[in-house]
Nucleic acid binder design. Structure first.
Lengths: 210, 210
DNA sequence: GAATGTCCATACACATGTGTATGGAAACCG
DNA sequence: CGGTTTCCATACACATGTGTATGGACATTC
C-alpha cells in the first residue's frame, strides 16, 4: 500500500466521508446512508470509517450541521439585500430556485424528509424555515405592505416553492421560465415590469445553455 | 389456539396487513414497512404474512393502489362541483386542507416521499398531481380568467399546500384559521367576502372542538 | 367424522447492517 | 533509523430483515 499524501489516491479524511454521505443523503435519503455502502463507494473498508467517526450517529449529526451552516444563508443574503422595486426583489428570490449553485433543493429536501422522523432534525428545519420566511416577508414589508399581508405573501412564495420541490416535477429551465409573468402577478398582486422579466429570462436561459 | 371467526381476536386477512402497513407507511415511511415489524404489530409471526402475500413487493404495490384509488377523488370532487363565486369555490378547496376526513395529507406525503426512490410510484404521483391541478384550474377558469392565469393560480394554490405539508408545521386549527382573508387575497387577487370567510371559520373551529 | 382448506408457528438459510478488537503498513519525527 | 502516529484491513459478535419449507390446529364440507 503506497501512501501519497497529495496524490490522486491520497488517504481519506473526515471530509471525504462527509461528502460521500451528503451525496447519498440527497440521492437516496437518510435511511440509505449506511457505513458499509459509503465504504464500498470510497473503495475502503469500514475500518477507516470508525477511525474518523465514533459512530454512524456522529456522521449524521455532522451532515445536519453542514446543512444548517450553509443552505439557509443563500436565501437570507438575497432577501435582506435592498432592491429598487418589488419585481426585482422577487426575481432575485426566483434566481435561487433556478440556479443550483445558489441553493441546493436536493439537499434541502433530503434534510426535510429526514426531519419527519427525527425531532432534533425537525426542530432545526423549523428554525431555518422561520428565518427564511421572515427574510422574504421583509421584501413585501419594504414594498409597503402591512406586516400580516407581507408575512402571508412570503409564506405563499416560499411554501409554493417548497411544494414545487416536493412534487419533484423535473421540468426543464425553458418550461420553468415560460410562466414568469403570471407567477409574479400571482405572488405580488401587481403587474410586473416586462423588461425586467425578459432580462431575467435571458440571463438564466443563457446560463443554462453553457 | 382458539379460533373465533367473528370475535375480537378473529383471524387476520389481507386487509389487516394492509391497514397496518398503511399506518406504518404514514408514520415512518416506506423503508420502515417491514414484514417483521408488521407481524410484531399484529402479534403474529411472518408465516401469516407469506400466506396472504407473495412478497413484500406485492404488499407495497397494494398500498400504492389503495392511494391511487382514493386520495385524488376528494380533490376532484370538490373542484369540479359548481360554485356561486370564486371565494366559495376556493374555501371549498381549503376545507380539504383542514379536514382530515376529506383528505389525508400524511398518506399523500408518505407516497410522495416514496416516489422519490421509485419510478413507478413517481409516475403515479405525477398523474395524480396533473389531474388535481387541472381540476383546480377549472375553478379559476369559471371565474373568468385566461387559461394560463387559471393554470398558474391553480399551481400556486395547490403547490403552496403541498409545500405547507412538506414543512410539517404542526399548527393548530386556530392558527390555521387566523390568516384566511390574506390567503384568499393572495391566491385570488381580489378581496374576499368576509361573511363567507367568517362562516367557514366558525364551521371548522366548531368541528375541531368536537 | 374423515378429508380438505384456512391460517399461522417454527425452523432454516441467507443477506445486509452496526460496532469492536487487533494488528499491520506507510508516513512522520526525533 | 527506531519509535510513534496515522490510516486502514481483517475477523468477530450481534441485530434485523427477507423468503422457504413444513407441520399443526382449527374450521368447513360432504
Amino acid at each position: 500500500m503506497t501512501r501519497k499524501p497529495k496524490g490522486q489516491d491520497r488517504t481519506l479524511g473526515r471530509g471525504d466521508w462527509i461528502a460521500a454521505a451528503l451525496q447519498t443523503l440527497i440521492e437516496e435519503g437518510v435511511d440509505s446512508v449506511k457505513v458499509v455502502r459509503l465504504a464500498d463507494r470510497l473503495s475502503v473498508t469500514r475500518g477507516s470509517f470508525y477511525w474518523h467517526f465514533k459512530s454512524r450517529d456522529e456522521l449524521l449529526a455532522t451532515l445536519l450541521e453542514a446543512w444548517e451552516a450553509k443552505n439557509t444563508q443563500a436565501i437570507l443574503g438575497r432577501a435582506e439585500h435592498p432592491h429598487r422595486d418589488l419585481t426585482s426583489a422577487v426575481l432575485d428570490i426566483f434566481a435561487l430556485w433556478v440556479d443550483r449553485a445558489l441553493f441546493d433543493p436536493g439537499l434541502d429536501f433530503a434534510i426535510r424528509e429526514w426531519a419527519r422522523r427525527s425531532t432534533t432534525v425537525h426542530d432545526a428545519v423549523r428554525r431555518a424555515d422561520d428565518r427564511r420566511v421572515k427574510a422574504i416577508a421583509g421584501i413585501y414589508r419594504r414594498a409597503g405592505m402591512t406586516a400580516i399581508d407581507a408575512f402571508i405573501r412570503a409564506r405563499i412564495l416560499y411554501f409554493m416553492q417548497i411544494g414545487y420541490y416536493a412534487l419533484d416535477l423535473r421540468e426543464t429551465i425553458e418550461e420553468r421560465m415560460r410562466y414568469l409573468t403570471p407567477y409574479l402577478r400571482g405572488f405580488n398582486g401587481e403587474e410586473p415590469d416586462e423588461s425586467q422579466v425578459a432580462s431575467f429570462r435571458r440571463r438564466y436561459l443563457k446560463q443554462a445553455a453553457q
